[in-house]
Design a protein around this nucleic acid. Structure first.
Length: 314
DNA sequence: GGCCAGGCTAGCA
DNA sequence: TGCTAGCATGGC
């Protein structure tokens, strides 16, 4: 088997173990091969199924060195595309220090940054995958969302066997477009959710939806384009810009998780309204995505901690 | 048992 | 233009 290896040393602070933790606790963990010191995933690149494995022996360090192995690429060009895909997914070309410097006047955020120093954005592989996952994630809790996502991937994604490992590549637009709505109903999809997902994939396949064009648009323009599609509201479009395109300045002001986190960490006596979130976020200009991500993550940790304390009676 | 989940649409006034 | 029931299910 042909394996290409790349050695990567991100700019500190950078915590590889935070990505692992993020994946384990997310509703997308089924997409990954997760080990103590590595992460892996299958991808379809230029028609070739490749498996990317990132290993990091010193993953708890805030200046880690890690190795990215690409298996199954027929030539160097495909291997390099896989490598660049993971540079995107792991936000390797986005140093954190400008964000930290910008937030230095906010004691609440500084406390969270101290706790999460080195946490960078874990992005989805591409806008298509991001859109499908975001539509599935609308409204439902994370446990149920994971069941739905896993069922879709196992229904129509390509299963790949590599060195005894069995993993699925995320379905292509063509694979989802071929489904019928009733194929998803037994998987506990609502009729509407099935329609939104399959219709979106069909739009991509027949060329009505141009995902590549989103890259050239500013945030407002891209959101306005996406929300014209049935099943895609502002929240979903914002998720795609944040997690699919990796826009650093995206503010999901209506998101319930962000509003809960602001109330919690800033000690508000009410859940902030969307205009109140926008007002507060003027201080975050340029890094809204990062602040949102840190607040979401910190609230998740606080909830997990509270749950743990409750279960142990402390 | 009821309400809320990292929402959205269709239908109604 | 603005409001709300309904969607499917799991967790608390």
């Amino acid at each position: 088997m042909n394996i290409s290896t790349y050695t990567i040393t991100p700019q500190a602070p950078y915590r590889f173990d935070f990505f692992r933790e993020r994946i384990v606790t997310s509703s997308n963990s089924y997409l990954y091969d997760i080990g103590d010191q590595h992460l892996g995933r299958a991808h379809l690149i230029d028609g070739h199924h490749v498996f990317v494995r990132v290993s990091c022996p010193n993953q708890g360090s805030d200046a880690p060195e890690f190795h990215l192995h690409v298996e199954g690429a027929p030539d160097e060009a495909v291997a390099e595309k896989a490598m660049r895909l993971w540079r995107h997914m792991l936000s390797l070309d986005r140093p954190l220090y400008p964000f930290y410097a910008k937030m230095s006047g906010d004691p609440v955020l500084c406390g969270i940054i101290d706790q999460l120093s080195g946490l960078n954005l874990l992005l989805e592989a591409d806008p298509f995958e991001s859109m499908i996952l975001s539509i599935i994630g609308q409204q439902v809790n994370l446990t149920f969302a994971e069941n739905l996502k896993r069922a879709l991937v196992e229904l129509c994604g390509t299963r790949i066997e590599l060195n005894g490992r069995s993993v699925y590549a995320f379905p292509t637009p063509e694979q989802i477009a071929r489904l019928q709505y009733e194929d998803l109903r037994p998987l506990k999809y609502s009729q509407r959710k099935a329609e939104y997902i399959i219709d979106f994939a069909r739009g991509v396949v027949n060329g009505e939806i141009d995902l590549a064009a989103l890259e050239q648009m500013d945030n407002d323009e891209a959101i306005a384009t996406l929300v014209k599609l049935r099943g895609i509201g502002r929240w979903t479009a914002e998720c795609v810009l944040l997690f699919g395109l990796g826009r650093p300045d995206l503010l999901p002001a209506a998101d319930i998780g962000l509003r809960n986190a602001i109330q919690h960490f800033y000690g508000l006596d009410h859940q902030p309204t969307e205009p109140e979130v926008r007002e507060r976020a003027t201080a975050w200009a340029g890094y809204e995505s990062y602040v949102t991500y840190y607040l979401w993550t910190a609230l998740g940790l606080a909830k997990a901690q509270a749950k743990k304390q409750k279960s142990t009676g402390n």
